[in-house]
Design a protein around this nucleic acid. Structure first.
Lengths: 157, 157
DNA sequence: CATTAAGTTCAATTTGTTTTGAACTTAATA
DNA sequence: TATTAAGTTCAAAACAAATTGAACTTAATG
């Protein structure tokens, strides 16, 4: 694996960390993105990432579980191969964005816990409304993507 | 401080963790949200959260730095007091959502690193377009909030 | 059915992060 | 100017998360 690709793999690790996932998860996914092979074996991943079997085992498991990669098996070959799933982008986002409703609830709850009304109460009310609204808007945005993605991609590229 | 409020403070800690900030940062902010006082002293915070001076010092500093709280001082009183800032909600969100453009770049870069074109290349292209588009849409969404917040709040509450 | 290749599991270790606490700074008061 | 209250700093301790590696499982092959 050349240096540029290894650097890229690290960059993916950091990106996934931003998403709240483990760095190693991002590395494995990043490698599968740029590997130029239809599927990659467990041991290839282990070697490229210089990690232990245990680490690769738990990481690939997690990636399969969240639907980012899938396993491939071949007759007459005991190895397991992995490839990235054709992940539905809208779903990928909405899974990560579902905390807005939760935020709205927490902020609302805060307002109810207060024993007096003040500027902060007002802010809590507005903030709860805001995050609830944001959650809805993002859902709509994802619908829009579904309907218009062909046009958006054509326009953008 | 009653049990319900302490539980709430913990809940805020976890919420902030989701945002990639430290749990203690969320705790202090949560306390200031529900404290029923115009401003709270350094030592009050320390006591309610059962934490060390060092911990409160670095946490309040961080919260001031990111603009979530502000200090209040009074003549004839050497103490520092803290209160939540009237944070502009749109700004609060856009600061957290600026990673979409970064994502788009990383995905695009991945496509360029590949030595062949395949289904994954296509996905990388689409994903890069998607995240770039999402970044723009969120900016628009925030503009919409600015223009219509009064109506949105009225409708929602 | 014994052997071996391929992964999994999990206790122990390594690595990274958070928190403490004691020494230090700063500035207000006596 | 000495004292003291209020915070800050940062090295060490506590805690938490990620990683290893060796023993274990599983299933394919000779």
């Amino acid at each position: 694996m050349n240096k540029k690709k290894l650097t890229y793999i690290e960059e993916c690790g950091l990106m996934f960390e931003q998403l709240g996932l483990a760095r190693m998860v991002g590395r494995v996914f990043g490698y599968l993105l740029i590997c130029d092979e239809d599927a990659v074996s467990f041991d290839q991943i282990r070697e490229v990432l210089s990690a232990s079997k245990g680490s690769i085992s738990s990481t690939t498991k997690q990636l399969v579980q969240i639907g980012f990669i899938e396993t491939v098996s071949l007759p007459g070959d005991r190895k397991t191969y992995f490839k990235v799933t054709d992940i539905e982008l809208g779903k990928m986002l909405s899974q990560r964005m579902n905390f807005f409703e939760k935020f709205a609830e927490v902020l609302s709850k805060g307002r109810n816990l207060k024993n007096r009304e003040d500027e902060v109460s007002d802010w809590l009310r507005d903030a709860a409304v805001f995050y609830s609204w944001v959650g809805e808007e993002i859902e709509q945005m994802i619908q829009k993507w579904h309907h218009e993605k062909e046009n958006i991609i054509k326009q953008k590229e």
